[in-house]
Design a protein around this nucleic acid. Structure first.
Lengths: 143, 143
DNA sequence: CTGTCTGCAAATGGTTTGCACCATA
DNA sequence: TATGGTGCAAACCATTTGCAGACAG
C-alpha cells in the first residue's frame, strides 16, 4: 500500500528549498513566492504550496501552523522554539533549547496516540514595540 | 485607555456562551452553530463568529486556532493543554498540569515582548485509531 | 515512454463584513 | 431614543485542486 513516491528533483523544488534555507526568518508561502519568482519568474503560487507541503511531509522542512492566519515555513528541522508577533505576524527563532521533549509528554492523553507537539511563544516584535511606543506620526491607538 | 465597551447582554451571546460551557470538547464555530440553533433557530453563523471573537477578546473563552484549519473554542480559560487529532481535527483536553509557565520563558527572545505561549499535542484520537486498525488488523502506520 | 510536476485558473471553505433592521440599556 | 447587535448574503483570502501540457528518470 505504501508507494515509494518517486521524489522528482525539479528545478522549482530545488529553488524553493534553497531560497527557504537562505532565510533566518520564516516566510509565508506568498512571501516565498515573491522571492522564488526572482529566479523563476513563471513559477506559480500553487507550485509553492504543493512543494512546501511535500517538503514538510517528507520532513525536509517544518510547517509552523499553530496560530491562525497564514502558515509559515522553516528550513531548520531540528526542534527549536519560535516567537510570533501578534501585531505583524512575523516569526523568529527563540534562542533556547527545546523546552519540551517526548519524555515529558503527559501520560493521560485521552487515548490519543501522540505523535508530537507544537509550541510557540507570542508577543510583540522589536519593530512593532517601537512603532507602538512612538506614535509621533498619526494618532494611532494601540488596539 | 480602553473604552469600557458597553457589552450588551443579548440572548444570542448568552446562549452561545452557555452552550459552549456545556461541552467538554472544543467545537468549531459551525458545530456550535448547529447546537445553538436548537435553541435559537434563526441565529446566523456570522453572529456565532462575531460573538466567539468578542468573547475571546474579553477573555471569557479561549480560541484555539490553527492555520489552514478551523478554529476551535474552549470555555475553560485556565491554562491547560490540548490534544488535536491530525486525522479528524478533534480537540480534547490533555489531563495534565501546565507544562510551561511564564517563569520558564526563555530570556533571549530576540527583543520580543513576550505575552504568552501556545502548546498543543497532536496525534490520533481513539476513534480514528480504531477505524484505522479495523480494515486490516495489525496494518502498519497510517499516513 | 510514463508517471509526476507545473502553470493556470477556478473552486473551496472558513471567516469577515456591509447593510438595513431590531432590541438592549 | 441611541447604539450596539443581528440576520442575511456577498466578499475575502489562504489554500487546494482539475486539467492539459511539460519534463525528470
Amino acid at each position: 500500500m505504501s508507494h515509494p513516491k518517486s521524489h522528482r528533483n525539479t528545478l522549482q523544488r530545488q529553488v524553493i528549498l534553497e531560497e527557504l534555507r537562505k532565510l533566518k526568518n520564516h516566510p509565508t508561502a506568498s512571501a516565498l513566492h515573491v522571492l522564488v519568482q526572482k529566479r523563476l519568474p513563471k513559477i506559480s503560487l500553487g507550485t509553492i504550496y504543493r512543494n512546501l507541503e511535500y517538503l514538510s511531509q517528507i520532513g525536509a522542512i517544518q510547517k509552523l501552523s499553530i496560530s491562525g492566519g497564514e502558515a509559515r515555513f522553516d528550513a531548520v528541522i531540528e526542534p527549536h522554539q519560535h516567537v510570533r508577533c501578534i501585531n505583524c505576524g512575523r516569526v523568529d527563532d527563540a534562542d533556547c533549547p527545546p523546552l519540551i521533549i517526548p519524555q515529558d509528554y503527559p501520560q493521560d492523553m485521552r487515548g490519543y496516540q501522540i505523535l508530537g507537539h507544537r509550541l510557540e511563544f507570542f508577543g510583540i516584535c522589536p519593530e512593532c514595540r517601537q512603532s507602538a511606543a512612538e506614535p509621533d506620526e498619526g494618532a494611532d491607538s494601540p488596539l
